[in-house]
Design a protein around this nucleic acid. Sequence first.
DNA 1: GAACGCAATAGTGTCGACACTTTCTTGACG
DNA 2: CGTCAAGAAAGTGTCGACACTATTGCGTTC
Lengths: 257, 257
Amino acid sequence: MTERAETSADSDPSLANEAETRRSADSSERAYTTIRKLLVEFKLKPGERINEVQLSRSLGVSRTPIREALNRLASEGFVSLTPNRGFFVRSLSTEGLLDLYELRSIIESAAFKLMCERAEDSEIDRLRQYWEAIVDGYRDQPPDIILAEDEGFHLLIAELSGNPELVGQLASINARIRFIRRIQIEHPSHDKAQITSHSAIVEAAVKRDAENGAKLLREHIEMTVSATQQALKDALLKVFAPDNGADLKRRRRARDA
Amino acid sequence: MTERAETSADSDPSLANEAETRRSADSSERAYTTIRKLLVEFKLKPGERINEVQLSRSLGVSRTPIREALNRLASEGFVSLTPNRGFFVRSLSTEGLLDLYELRSIIESAAFKLMCERAEDSEIDRLRQYWEAIVDGYRDQPPDIILAEDEGFHLLIAELSGNPELVGQLASINARIRFIRRIQIEHPSHDKAQITSHSAIVEAAVKRDAENGAKLLREHIEMTVSATQQALKDALLKVFAPDNGADLKRRRRARDA
DNA sequence: GAACGCAATAGTGTCGACACTTTCTTGACG
DNA sequence: CGTCAAGAAAGTGTCGACACTATTGCGTTC
C-alpha cells in the first residue's frame, strides 16, 4: 500500500512561481509546494513544531522527501530548524513582515532604476502592454488572479532590470508575503488605489523617469503595507481565534530562539 | 564499520557565517559546510555534475545528509537541480558575478541609509570602534582574516539597519562571492584603497550623512568589482587550465538551462 | 562506415528500519 | 502535595536497499 502512483494531477500552478532551479514531477517537489501552501494558508501555525511523521503520512510519502522540502523551506526562511528538535514554523510577526516589505521596496525601486537605464524600448513597451492587458478587468478577477497579475507586474520590472539575481530575490520574498497579500486583496480596504499606482508607474517607465518611478514604487509599497496592517491583525486573530491575542506575544518571543 | 563517531573537530569557523536558522553538530551540517567549501574553492568545477555517491563516500556519510546539504545549496543558488539527472555546480560566469555584486551594492547602500535613520549613537559608535580596532593591522593579516574582517564590517552596517531580513540576504550573497573576494585579496591589485574607503564610510556614518555614505559604499563596491575582474579571469584560467577559455562560453550557456 | 536500437551500467529518488535524543509519564521520596 | 528521577514514548538523524531513469557502449542493420 505504499505505491505512490496516484493520479491526482493537483499541481496548483498558482503557486508555481519561483524562477529557480527546480523542475517538478517528483514527490519531493510535490511535498515542497504542498507544505509551502500549508504554511502560507496558516494550516501550519506560526511557532508550531512540524511533525515529520504526521506530515509524511498525510501526504502519502516517506519522510525523506518531506525533509528535503523542509530543508529548502528553511533556506527560504519559511521554517527554522533546531537540531534534534525538528522544524518549526517561523512566525511572521507584524514586525518581520515589515522587514520583508522594506526589503521588497528596496529591491523593487532599485530594479526600476536599472530598468530605466538598460531596458530596450520594446521591453518597456512589453511592461506597458502587460499592464494595459489586465487593467480593465483587474478588479473583477478572483483574488488569486489579481495576486498573480500583481506579482507578475512587479516581477516583470525586476526582469527588465536585467539582473536575474534580483529577480530570484524578489520571487523569494513574494513567496513569503504572498499569504498576506492575498488576505489584503480580499479585505475591504483593497481598492483601486492599486490601479492608479500601477498606471503611474508604467507612465514613469515609459518616460524613463527613474527617480520618480522609484519613488512611486516605494510609496506604492508603503501604502500597501499600511493598508495591510489591519488585514494582518484580523487574520492573526482568526488563526488564534479562541483566546484573545495574548499568546501572540509569546510566539513573537519564540521566533528569535 | 559504518560507525560515525569520528573525533575530527574540524568545524572551520571561517565559513560559519550565515545568520540563519541552523545549529551545527549533525553530519548534515558538516556536509553542508564541506561541500560549500568545495564549491567556493573550485574543487567542484562550474558546470560539473555532482556525484552523490562519490561525495558521500569521500565525506564518510550516507547520501541522505549529502542530499539535504545539496538541497540547501540549491536554494541558495550554489548548485542547481535537474530532476532525475542530479545536482550541477552552478557556474558563476563573470556576468553572474556582476549581478551578485550589483545586488550587494543595492542592499548595502540601502542598509547604510536605514542605519543613519535608525541606529542609536552608541551603535554607530560600535561600528567606528569595530573599524578602528582592526584598521591598524589590517594589511598584515592573512587573507582569511582580512576577508572575515571586511565581511564583518559590511555585515555590521546591515545589522545596524535594524532589518534582519536584510542581514540574511547580505550574508547569503557574501557566501556566494566569498571565493572571489579571497582571490582578489590575494591578488597584487589589492591595496589600501579598501582602507581609505572604509574609513570614509565610517566617517559618513558618524555624521549620519546617508546620501554620501551610500554613494561611498556604491563606489567602494564598484571599485572592488573592477579590481576583481582581472583576478577572476586569472582564477578561471587556472581552473580550466589546459585548454584556453573557449569552453567558458559553453558553460555560460549551460547556466540558464 | 554510419545510424540506429538495445542491453548493460551508472546514478538518482524514495523507502523502511534503526540508533540516538528529546519529551512525556509515572511513581518514589522529601 | 511538590520535586525529582527513571523509564517509556515520541521524534529526529542517518543508514543501506531497491526501484526507476538516464547514459553509455556495443552489436546489428542498411
